[in-house]
């Protein structure tokens, strides 16, 4: 079943076309990675899909809701961990979770928060103010918050940026556990991450989608050994 249907999606800023005629269909429960060098248009795409930014052109259906007309219905079933960590700086970790649980009016609030604390190993920093956390913990908190409303669709914009190897592996585990239950659209610059997590990847370059498929398909297509080599070859135009 198609959960996200993107048709001819375009976003123009004054003199840049940040997203150029994008067409992608994402299946329910799929982990889809958007890849591309800096400025490729990944964040802009995620912002549009998560209702933060209006497209200049094109049509998007999420769970059969229209992205613009049924915005409020879509908001109920999605969540995001933005590229920059988004937390309330003067609140503690626990207060941050309680705050967002309140914003989403979560019913079994305490239970949900306890689960997230365990999942992300936040016990020892629970009463620390968010602004005093290390970058890694801030990011973990930001991602934990994005699961507070049990989203059906989750957008993760560079979720592992700034995480150490251990935390990154832990987060992979969390993401893998969500596989099949939550549709996840993520962006990353770590190719081994994209390779190990994603069902499919889409590679963007200058706003355009230039490759789409499973990591293995792209390795085959580009006649390379690793996914990272495949990515480099595709982005530098070695495919044609």
């Amino acid at each position: 079943m198609i959960e996200i249907d993107i048709k001819d999606l375009t976003k123009k800023y004054k003199d840049v076309v940040a997203v150029d005629n994008l067409n992608i269909q994402i299946k329910k429960g799929e982990i889809f990675s958007l890849l591309g060098t800096n400025g490729a248009g990944k964040t802009t795409t995620i912002k549009i899909l998560s209702t933060l930014l209006l497209p200049s052109n094109g049509e998007v259906k999420i769970n059969n809701f229209d992205l613009i007309k049924d915005k409020m219905k879509i908001k109920e079933i999605i969540n995001i961990s933005p590229q920059e960590t988004a937390i309330a700086p003067n609140l503690t970790v626990l207060e941050n979770l309680e705050f967002m649980a309140g914003i989403y009016q979560i019913k079994n609030k305490k239970e949900k928060i306890d689960t997230l604390i365990k999942t992300f190993n936040l016990e020892e920093v629970l009463n620390k103010k968010a602004k005093n956390l290390s970058g890694g913990y801030q990011r973990k908190l930001s991602i934990a918050i994005s699961l507070i409303n049990n989203p059906q669709i989750l957008f993760l914009d560079e979720p592992t940026l700034g995480l150490d190897v251990i935390s990154r592996k832990e987060l992979w585990k969390v993401i893998k556990e969500l596989k099949g239950k939550v549709t996840i659209i993520l962006t990353t610059h770590y190719m081994e991450e994209a390779n190990s997590l994603s069902d499919r990847v889409g590679i963007m370059n200058k706003g355009k989608l230039i490759a789409l498929g499973t990591p293995n398909e792209l390795i085959k297509k580009s006649k390379t050994k690793t996914f990272e080599d495949a990515f480099v070859k595709i982005v530098t135009g070695g495919l044609d």
């Binding site: 209702t51 908001k75 995001i80 988004a86 937390i87 967002m100």
Partner: peptide, 16 residues
């Protein structure tokens, strides 16, 4: 401050 710190972005995705 909320706007610069992306907190508004997070809230912007919520049904607020």
């Amino acid at each position: 401050k909320d706007r610069t710190s992306s907190l508004t972005a997070r809230l912007g995705v919520s049904p607020m």
